[in-house]
Amino acid sequence: MRQESIDLMGVLLSVRDLQTSFFTSDGEIRAVDGVTFDIDEGATVGLVGESGCGKSVTALSIMRLLSRGTGRVVGGEILYRGENLAEYSEAGMRRIRGNEISMIFQEPMTSLNPVFTIGEQIGEAVRLHQGVSAREARNRAVEMLRLVKIAEPEKRIKDYPHQLSGGMRQRVMIAIALSCNPRLLMADEPTTALDVTIQAQILDLIGELQERLGMAVLLITHDLGVVAQQADDVAVMYAGRIVERAKPEIIFSRPMHPYTVGLMNSVPGATGKRRRLEAIPGIVPSPLDWPSGCRFRTRCTRADDACAHSPPELVEVEPGHWVSCLKVSAADAPVLAVEA
């Protein structure tokens, strides 16, 4: 009990058994189904998985920005600095958004409003949350553009989004997100839409600013390479659930969940050796009709009848390494650890 309270002290955001569903005419889509993770103050957590696995929905659930009418958090809780975000009023939540928790998105080309200058768009959040004058907001916008390393910020604040390249726009998005010194930045595939050369720059920028401003980052990506560089903790998601969680050095040296193993084998250079890339057989099942028991069993080479009966729990197979698979037990870990 005492241990628990000490642990919670450094925790900024705690997601507990989050369940988010979309209600469509075809039925309930259980996009996120029992996701649990913590983000410590100043830490970086990587949330990894293929498109449609529920990682973006997790972030939108935290922000309470699910599309109204269709998407809803149906279970679990999200504690921000120990307070349940579900209990906040809409106005209270608006004071959190862009101020305490910020978000940047995958598509810098469409995430900025085309009819406002970037200065106006950066200044808007500042004016909203800090109640400063238009002039101060402008100065803050210049300062933020300088921070995200955009040349000639005084000139650039008068530019419209269409005058900037994709990488520049993502820098502007970061400037908007960080303009009010948030404690948590959620970056949803921040580099996916960018050129490879720009990707590294943007990631380095996020890492550098994180260090300077001391914020925590939730890095959502399908790119294992990205989390390997940046994250303190990695959670691998599949079909709305977390299947494996550990520090990156553990997960990369000894992945245990068959899905994580498959994911590693499908990426060139992840193991350092030149070899034939392996694809994970089959396709992601429909979220309208998840398989019973373990959701990966339909694509898993190790699955048997037992996997269909009940969903596997997330079990700590070695200190700090959690896996949700019936075929992986604590007994496997030391053996693998010795091998590594």
């Binding site: 608006r94 862009g98 998105f105 469409t110 900025l112």
Partner: peptide
């Protein structure tokens, strides 16, 4: 349904 509307909401705009 545009992305920049989500951006605006994520900024805390009412």
């Amino acid at each position: 349904h545009e992305d920049y509307i989500t951006t605006a909401r994520a900024k805390g705009v009412n």
